[in-house]
Simulated scan of single mutants.
Amino acid sequence: MEMIWQGILAALRLLITGDPEVMEITLLTLRVSTIGTLISLLIGIPFGTVLALKAFPGRRVVLSIVNTGMGLPPVVVGLWVSIFLWRSGPFGFLNIMYTPTAIIIAQAIIASPIVAALTCAALQQTNPKLRLQIKALGATRLQYVWLLLKEVRYSLLAAIIAGFGAIVSEIGASMAVGGNIQGQTRVLTTATVLEVSKGNFDIAIALSIILCLLAYGATLCLTLLQQKQQGGA
């Protein structure tokens, strides 16, 4: 119990004093997770929309793969991204291994299936009568898709929350492609594991508390936005 209190006090001390290293790690965590989430939205929403609204051969197989991707182990993603970005890999010439860019790529891959699957599920649950009504009003294909996405906007915000939550808390991919390099690729999850391995449980608890506060803060903002829009609908 004493160790837990020491961790809480250490977290308060680090936050109040604005420890430079902790602030750097926290800001990097927020930056890569936010960019990774945005990229996953650019990939996942269009892909999920196509899966929901377009009939094509093998659609159910693709949908099952996307649904499986929702539980894709981050360490597996980290492994394959490492293989492709390694110096001898297909994209080794980019020289982005062990950089924040590599972490962003891995995290975007982790979150994209989540966003795509939730987008597809939301669109498939729309009222068929609404679809017919939109078409009857002479909407173009783009207008048709836009109106349906607008109809499920609350579910899309839930998809954003789920995607962000999945990548801000993952460690396997970040460790594999980032290398946990101090001042360059060290994020809150990898820093926590490092402190645990060193036996610094008070600092590890402090970092874990900061990570939870970061995740909660971001999720709270999205939830408030979701509820505000829902209340104004």
Rank of each mutant, 00 (worst) to 15 (best):
M1Q: 14
Q6T: 13
I8P: 00
A10K: 11
A10V: 06
A11E: 08
R13T: 15
P20R: 11
P20S: 11
E21M: 12
V22T: 15
V22P: 00
M23T: 15
E24A: 14
I25C: 02
T26N: 02
L30T: 11
R31F: 13
V32H: 01
I35M: 05
L38R: 07
L51V: 10
A55G: 12
R59L: 11
L63Q: 15
V66Y: 07
P74A: 09
W80I: 09
V81M: 03
V81C: 00
S82D: 09
W86E: 14
F91S: 01
G92C: 02
M97P: 00
Y98A: 05
T99M: 02
Q107S: 02
A111E: 13
I114R: 03
A117G: 04
A117L: 03
A121Q: 12
A121L: 05
L123Q: 01
Q125F: 02
T126Y: 04
P128W: 10
P128G: 05
P128D: 11
K129Y: 13
L147W: 11
L147E: 14
R153H: 09
Y154L: 11
S155C: 03
S155I: 05
L156V: 09
A166R: 15
I171C: 01
I171T: 12
G172Q: 05
M175A: 09
M175V: 06
I181L: 13
R186T: 12
V187H: 00
T190R: 08
V193W: 09
N200H: 13
D202Y: 07
I205S: 03
A206G: 08
L213Q: 09
L213R: 07
L213M: 13
G217V: 08
Q227W: 08
G231A: 15
